[in-house]
């Protein structure tokens, strides 16, 4: 699972958004990428999350910062999906027009080499509600109770969505194991 390498802020302290960006930026990026499946949408999502973090820090109560960030990320993602009435899996493929900076293509290739692309595609093929639960559980590492709180659903719903999501992943992966 993915987690920030930097330690959580000391108990009782509230980080600045710059600290969040510096210490948790890559964690946010990974969670966002697992949800969206492409760098363009990931970058938009991360920037939107940081904006909400900037605004929300005044009400943040020190605790599980990673859980708080992943909850914001997932909910922003779900809001965007529902608002646009489209599935992120249908996002445009990475092509030459989208690779506007010299380093991006190399980064794309690097990312693809690091993780099995078919697995990321299988994740993207999941219904967004299932995908959100799978990412929060198996990428972020939240408990069922934490996921339920983050998404506003009962623990039993978390359990069933997670199980169905995993089974669908297995089906999507087929013989490729």
């Amino acid at each position: 699972m993915t987690s920030p390498t930097s330690s959580e802020p000391p108990v009782g302290s509230v980080p600045t958004w710059e600290q969040v960006a510096r210490d948790h930026g890559r964690f946010l990026y990974t969670v966002a990428y697992r949800l969206t499946g492409n760098h363009d949408d990931t970058q938009d999502l991360v920037q939107e999350v940081l904006l909400r973090v900037q605004r929300g820090l005044v009400t943040y109560r020190p605790g599980n910062l990673s859980g708080w960030l992943s909850r914001i990320t997932t909910n922003v993602f779900l809001d965007q999906v529902r608002a646009t009435k489209r599935r992120p899996t249908e996002a445009l493929p990475d092509d030459a027009d989208r690779v506007i900076e010299g380093g991006l293509a190399a980064d794309e290739a690097l990312a693809a080499a690091r993780l099995p692309e078919h697995l990321q595609q299988a994740l993207l093929a999941l219904p967004v509600d299932y995908r959100a639960v799978v990412v929060l559980s198996d990428v972020v590492g939240l408990s069922y109770a934490e996921i339920g709180e983050a998404l506003g659903v009962p623990v039993g719903t978390v359990r069933s969505r997670l199980h169905r999501g995993r089974l669908q992943l297995r089906t999507a992966l087929g013989d490729d194991r």
């Binding site: 990026y29 697992r34 970058q43």
Partner: peptide
């Protein structure tokens, strides 16, 4: 399935990406 997802590594942002609010 669970192990495969948990085994996925971190995703690197492009080198020119700046972590900043919208």
């Amino acid at each position: 399935s669970r192990q495969l997802v948990r085994g996925l590594g971190p995703v690197e942002p492009p080198a020119d990406f700046v972590f900043a609010p919208s």
